[in-house]
Computed example of a mutant assay.
Amino acid sequence: MFQSILVQALSGVSSGMVLFLVASGMTLIFGTLRVANFAHGSFYMIAAYLSFTLTRWVGHGTWGFVVSLVVAPLIVALLGLVVERFLLRRIATRAHQYQLILTYALTLILADAVKMIWGRDNFTVPRPGALDGAFDIFGTPFPSYYALLIVVGAVIAVALHLLLTRTRFGKVLRASVADGQMVGALGIDVPRLYTGVFALGAWLAGLGGALAAPVGSISLGIDSSIIIECFAVVIIGGVGSVGGALLGALIIGVTKSVGILFAPKLAIAFIFIALCAVLVLRPQGLLGRSTA
Rank of each mutant, 00 (worst) to 15 (best):
Q3D: 11
L193H: 08
A263I: 12
H40G: 08
I150Y: 03
A77G: 06
G170Q: 00
S225F: 06
E84R: 02
V83S: 11
S15A: 14
L78R: 06
Q181R: 14
A105C: 06
P128I: 06
T107E: 03
L148N: 07
I251G: 04
I109K: 02
G129I: 08
V67Y: 02
R90Y: 12
L19S: 09
A274Q: 01
A72K: 03
A72G: 06
V234A: 09
D223S: 12
I222A: 01
I29D: 01
I156S: 01
L247D: 14
A130Y: 00
F86R: 13
A210F: 07
I218V: 13
L275C: 05
A130L: 15
S290G: 14
G153M: 05
G238P: 05
G25E: 10
S144H: 08
L275I: 10
G285S: 13
I188R: 02
S11R: 01
Y145S: 12
G187I: 05
L211G: 13
G209K: 02
M26H: 11
S241F: 00
G288K: 03
K265A: 15
I91D: 04
G259M: 05
G119V: 09
A154H: 03
L54A: 08
G288E: 04
I188N: 05
H60P: 09
S176E: 06
G243W: 04
V190F: 01
G259K: 02
L69S: 11
V152Y: 08
V258A: 15
C230V: 13
A105K: 04
R90V: 13
V242M: 03
M17Q: 12
P126M: 07
G119L: 07
A178N: 11
D223Q: 14
E84I: 04
V177Q: 00
M45F: 09
G41W: 06
L69A: 14
A39E: 03
G208Q: 09
A213Q: 13
V66R: 05
I226G: 07
T55Q: 13
L266M: 14
V278I: 15
T32D: 02
V70D: 01
W203A: 13
A39S: 12
L108E: 06
I5L: 15
P264F: 00
L186M: 15
D179T: 14
L54V: 13
G201V: 09
D189A: 07
R174V: 10
V190I: 04
K171P: 03
